[in-house]
Design a protein around this nucleic acid. Structure first.
Lengths: 221, 221
DNA sequence: GGTGGTTGAGTTCATTGTGGTCACAGGCGG
DNA sequence: CCGCCTGTGACCACAATGAACTCAACCACC
């Protein structure tokens, strides 16, 4: 369970955000704060994994607060939720390594997608990185459209492939997946590789057979 | 022109990095530092846009230095260049919003690609974001594969071999490595020799057995 | 001590079955 | 009718393999 602290100067807005977060599986709000000072105190007290941070606070600008929060707990993650549209605000937030930057007003789905993406990424960091490729995976994962697929892929087929992957406890090759669903190997491979790029599947190679090794895909829970 | 400060405890390495950066169009090294204190002073003095930061410094761990650097100049960007492969180091760096995380040892091309990507992203931030899509564009990095392996080698197998090497404190022969991973001796040797050529492994010859001497590979920390 | 045989690892190479690409077919909306 | 999108068959490229070959050290015998 990922624990969350909600920070927003507006009491009602904080309440709404709290409701949103609690509706997402795997997330739990452990507290709310309405000012920078309250946020620092709550962080020290509750030790949440993630902070939902509004930038417009009565006592301090949110971006200037992040350093103080990090001083209290260096390992806390921050997701900015604000109406601030200045380029400097976005840049400053990115520079401080925020998990995401969500513009108000937003719907439940917008937040849910970003929270789930954060959870996935959080779980997928290996204990030890061995190659630069591992690092790149951490740096540049699925920030892209979780709901919108790239050109040439359809939602229906994507769902079929995902279902087939979930249905098999062990791994699937592109050819096996194609056979299972009833589509061509090329299409199956395209969707499987898409999921792999998103980090939703794990790819292993099967050696031993003569010929080129086989890529086998496993759904990542 | 993007101005750069190079920070590395090893004087010669700093010099090499300087040479690399100066060879990239649009970048100019304005100074070097060999310790955390020197870095802070140079930052205040030279006001570079970007810092190339090694994490292993004599007076402070690089990740702990970032907060001090940001206190001096909040708008400075940081690109980590280090041999540190611990997950916590990578996570901590990402959490502090580093531009990139490049593993030593690396070639000129690796750095060039990352610098140019940084320059591109830097230039492409709109003055005002109007929609969430604008924000997502800033957050989403231009996906680019780096660290290209030579023909005939695959990333997955390379990672496996690297993992096997790191897992053994002493040395491995090609045959032992092959057995451990489940690939053929020929393949294992190809990857081991690749790493040796990169300088990532140390090679020693073991005599004493009858037959041709055995090449043993040790992962270089 | 020189010399040729033995041994086991390095090296080369054709083979192989999958990975990946490309241009086209069929469908859908305008 | 045209243009765009999604899936496909066909084709080539590619990574790994095992067998055959080469090579460096050891060893035994003269």
């Amino acid at each position: 369970m990922i624990t969350v602290l909600v920070v927003d100067d507006d009491f009602m807005v904080a309440r709404i955000h709290r409701g949103f977060v609690d509706r997402v599986d795997g997330f739990e709000v452990v507290g709310t704060a309405n000012s920078g000072d309250q946020a620092v105190a709550a962080l020290a007290d509750l030790a949440p994994d993630l902070i939902l941070l509004d930038l417009y606070l009565p006592d301090v600008f949110g971006l200037d607060l992040i350093a103080r929060l990090r001083a209290v707990r260096p390992d806390v993650d921050i997701l900015v939720i604000t109406a601030a549209r200045e380029a400097e605000a976005v840049r400053g937030a990115v520079r401080q390594g925020v998990v995401n930057y969500l513009l108000k007003p937003f719907g439940f789905e917008d937040l849910r997608i970003r929270l789930q993406e954060y959870a996935r990424r959080r779980a997928s960091v290996p204990d030890q990185v061995t190659s630069q490729a591992d690092v790149d995976r951490v740096l540049a994962p699925t920030r892209q459209l979780v709901n919108r697929l790239p050109k040439g892929l359809s939602q229906e087929t994507a769902d079929l492939v995902a279902a087939a992957l979930r249905a098999t406890p062990d791994s699937l090759s592109a050819a096996e997946c194609a056979e299972k669903i009833g589509i061509s190997r090329v299409s199956a491979r395209r969707y499987l590789e898409f999921y792999a790029a998103q980090g939703r599947t794990e790819v292993t190679l099967r050696y031993g057979t003569t010929g080129r090794p086989e890529r086998r895909y496993t759904w990542r829970t």
